[in-house]
Design a binder for these strands. Structure first.
Lengths: 413, 413
DNA sequence: AGGGGTTAGGAAAGGGGCTGGAGAAAGTCC
DNA sequence: GGACTTTCTCCAGCCCCTTTCCTAACCCCT
C-alpha cells in the first residue's frame, strides 16, 4: 500500500534483470534505451547485479570508432532457483539456472486420498532433494524455492488458507516445508505463478496491463495491472473460473451453474465434445490429458467433429475473454497452461473471432490476444520467479560497499 | 507507466488534502497518524496547501499541558471547482467550493436531435457561465472545470473518441470547449468520475481496491486498483455494462444479447417490472426516472410486485457483482448513481444476498458492499475532483520559494 | 608509431523525496 | 517565574534518479 522510493529501485532492478535475461548478452546502453532509465542508473544497477553474481561481464561489442561497449550476460551458474508445482495428482519440481534453463526435473505422483499436508510436504521435499542432487548444485547456490499450491494462499504468513482439491483449511504449509527444506521459501498459487512467468519472460513483458488466462483442469485469470501483479485485498484476485457465463448452465463443483470453468476447463471441453458426439473415439473418459491430446491431433487432421468442438469451446472462451477485455482494457491477453499449449493456433484463431464478436470496438482494438510463448511448464517457472523476485528484493545497502570493492579489484582486461 | 519520486509526493499531497476535506478541522498530528507519513512530511505538505490557499489555520486545540496543536481546515472560499455532467438529454453543471459544497447549479436540457458537438458545447458554456455568475466568484478563483462525457475519452488530448449516444467519433471536445471557457479543462467519462468521487469523498476512501458499480440508464464499473483509478491501456476500462450475463438473453443496443445493462440499467429494471406485471401502474413507459421513483415508493410501501421486481433486479446484479468480487477481490463494492440512490437499502439487502449466493467464500468475506454515501450528483462531483487533482498535480518548485515568504510574513497570532 | 576523432562508462554534483532528531515555541501547572 | 510538556520547524542524513564532466578505450589516418 505505502509506496516508497525504494520500491522504485526494486522495480527498476527487476526491469533491468528481466531485460538482461530476455536478451543476453546486452550492453548498458541497450539496457538504458530499453528501460528508459538513465545510463548512470543502469550502470549502478548492473553493478549491483554483478556483485550479486547474477550477471557477468562477457566481453565487448565490436566498435566502429569508439570505446567498445561492455557486454553483460546472465551468469547462468551464478545461482539456482527451484519451482514447485503442486497439483491435485502430482508434484512437479524443476530446478533452473539463472538464465531460467531447466537443469533438472522431478515428479512425484500422488494417489487419490494422499491428501494430508504432511504427505504432500513429503513429496515436495523428496522432489526438491532430487533436483538438487541431479543438478549437482551446491546448497549455498540455491537462491530460493517457489511453491505453487492451488487455492487461496496467504503469501506473507505462508498459510494455504483454502485448497479445494483436498479441502485444506489454513494449513501452515510454509512452516511444514521449512522443516524439510533449508532454502528460502515463497508460496503462492498457480494462477499468479503463470502471470508472473508471463510478466518476466512471456507475452506480458513490458506491458502495463495484461490478463493471463489459465486453461487447465481449472480455469483462472492472472491479472497484471499497472505493471505488477494484482493480488486483491486477500490475495485471491483472478478467480475467473467461476464467473457465470451461462445462467442456469452446467453444474459446477463450486455449487453454482454455468461457470466459465465448466465450459472451457479440460473437463468442460470434454463435455463439449461429448455433447457433439457422445461416442467420439477422441474421448478418454478418465484421462483429460489424453483427450485433449487426441483432440489436438484430430484438429490438425481437420477432423470436423474436433474442429467443431474447438469452435464451441472458443465461443464460450471468447465470450468470457471479451468481458475481461471490456472490463480491464488490457494490452494483451495471454492464453496459458497446458490446454492452451496443446490446442494452440486453432484455438487461438477461433477465440480471436469469438472475442471480436463480443467485445466493444475500442477496447478490442487496443488488445492483442496471443498464446503463451513459454515453452516449459509455466507454473514451475513462475514459482521459481517468485524465488528470483525474493532474492532481488532484499539487496539493500550491503551491495553498495561491495561495489567499491569490485571497482578496486578487477579492471577489465 | 514510469514512476518517479515526484509521483509519491503527488500521491501524498492528494492523501493529505483528502484527509483534511474529510475531517475539517484537523491537526498535523492527526494527519500524520491517518496517512502514515512522518510529521515532517505532513508539515511541509500542509505548508504547501496553505500557500496555495486551499486550507487555512483555524485556531488551536485545547492543550492539557503542552503546546496546543494548530488546527487546519479547508479554506472553502480559497477556490472554486466546476463539474460538468454531460448526458444524453441534459447538461448538468455544479460549482463547488473547496469543501466540495455546492454553491451553484445549472441545467440545460437538450432536445433529441441536438447532438452536434457545437450545440453541446454551447450548452456547457452557457451553464458554466451561469454557475460562475450565480456563485459570484471571481474568474481567477476558478481552479478548473472537469467535464464528464459518456463514452470513450482520451483524457490527454481531450478528444471524445466515441460517444454512443450521438455517434460522435474523435470529437476534439476539449479544444471546442476551450474556445468558450477560459478555465483549465479536464475531460473524462462518468464512470471514472463516479469512481474518483468515491475515492476522494465516498466509500472507497483509503481503500486499496474498490469497485464502483454505476447504476444509471447505462451501467459500468469504475475500478480503483492499488489506491488509484485503473484506466486500462486506452482509458476505457470499466465497461462492465456489456458483460454477458445471460447467454442469448435480452437484446442490447450494443448488438449482443444478455448484457448486464439490459437487466440492471434503468430500462432493464423497467423490463423486469414489465415482465412481472405488464400493466403495472408503476410503469411510466417514457420516463425512466418516474418509473424508478414509483418503484422505490412502492417498495417502501411493501408492494409485493415492486419487491419482486427489486429482488429480480438484485438477482441479476448480484450475479454480476459476484463475478467482479471473484475476479478482483476488492475491499469494497460501492453501488452508485441515481438508480442505486433511489432504490437504496432494499436493493442493497437483496444484492448482498444474491452476491453471497454466487461469490466464492474467501473473496466474499473480504468484501463489503455498500451504497454510495455521496448525497449529491456523483458525476459532477467526480468531474470537479478531476479539476482538483489537476490543480494539485503541478505544485512544483514555486511553492517552495513561497513557503519561505510565508514563514517570514505571518506568524500565528 | 603516434595523434585525432568518437564512444563508453565512472564519479561527482544536483534535484526531489522522506525521516529522525535538535531546538525553538507555546502552552499548563506549581 | 520556573519546571514540565507538547508541538512544530529546521536541518542533517539517506535514498532515489539524472545531468554533466572527464577519463578510458578504441578506430582510423597520417
Amino acid at each position: 500500500m505505502k509506496r516508497t522510493s525504494r520500491d522504485i529501485r526494486t522495480a527498476n532492478r527487476y526491469e533491468v534483470l528481466r531485460q538482461i535475461i530476455a536478451e543476453s548478452p546486452t550492453s548498458r546502453q541497450e539496457l538504458a534505451a530499453a528501460t528508459g532509465l538513465s545510463l548512470a542508473t543502469v550502470a549502478t544497477l548492473v553493478g549491483e547485479l554483478l556483485d550479486l553474481g547474477m550477471i557477468t561481464e562477457v566481453g565487448f561489442e565490436d566498435s566502429a570508432g569508439g570505446r567498445p561497449r561492455g557486454l553483460v550476460a546472465v551468469n547462468a551458474s551464478g545461482g539456482a532457483l527451484i519451482g514447485v508445482d503442486i497439483a491435485e495428482t502430482y508434484v512437479h519440481v524443476e530446478l533452473f539456472d539463472l538464465a531460467l534453463n531447466v537443469l533438472a526435473r522431478a515428479d512425484e505422483d500422488m494417489r487419490p486420498g494422499e491428501s494430508r499436508p504432511e504427505q504432500v510436504v513429503g513429496h515436495v521435499a523428496a522432489a526438491v532433494g532430487s533436483v538438487v542432487a541431479q543438478a549437482g548444485v551446491e546448497a549455498a547456490r540455491v537462491l530460493g524455492v517457489g511453491v505453487s499450491v492451488p487455492g487461496q494462499v496467504d503469501r506473507d504468513t505462508g498459510v494455504a488458507e483454502y485448497a479445494p482439491n483436498w479441502d485444506w483449511h489454513d494449513v501452515p504449509l510454509l512452516d511444514l516445508l521449512a522443516e524439510h527444506i533449508a532454502y528460502p521459501l515463497y508460496l503462492d498459487n498457480p494462477l499468479r505463478a503463470c502471470a508472473v512467468a508471463e510478466l518476466w519472460f512471456g507475452a506480458a513483458r513490458g506491458r502495463g496491463d495484461a490478463v493471463v488466462v489459465n486453461l487447465g483442469t481449472g480455469v483462472g485469470a492472472g491479472l497484471v495491472l499497472g505493471g505488477g501483479l494484482h493480488r486483491g485485498v486477500s490475495n485471491s484476485a483472478g478467480e475467473w473460473g467461476h464467473t457465470t457465463l451461462v445462467l442456469d448452465g452446467r453444474l459446477c463443483h463450486c455449487g453454482n451453474h454455468g461457470c466459465v470453468e465448466t465450459y472451457v476447463g479440460a473437463p468442460g471441453i470434454m463435455q463439449n465434445l461429448r455433447e457433439l458426439s457422445p461416442r467420439s473415439p477422441l474421448l478418454h473418459p478418465e484421462d483429460q490429458t489424453a483427450t485433449i491430446d487426441a483432440l489436438a491431433r484430430a484438429v490438425a487432421a481437420e477432423d470436423p467433429v474436433a474442429l467443431k468442438a474447438v469452435r464451441d469451446t472458443a465461443r464460450y472462451l471468447g465470450a468470457g475473454i471479451a468481458d475481461l477485455v471490456n472490463l480491464l482494457n488490457p494490452e494483451v491477453v495471454v492464453l496459458s497452461s497446458w490446454v492452451a499449449a496443446r490446442l494452440g493456433e486453432p484455438l487461438l484463431g477461433e477465440v480471436r473471432q469469438a472475442v471480436a464478436r463480443h467485445a466493444l470496438r475500442r477496447p478490442l482494438a487496443a488488445t492483442e490476444i496471443v498464446l503463451s510463448p513459454i515453452p516449459t511448464d509455466p507454473v514451475s517457472l513462475g514459482a521459481a520467479t517468485f524465488a528470483l523476485e525474493g532474492a532481488l528484493q532484499s539487496v539493500g545497502q550491503r551491495a553498495v560497499k561491495r561495489t567499491q570493492a569490485r571497482s578496486r579489484t578487477a579492471p577489465p582486461s
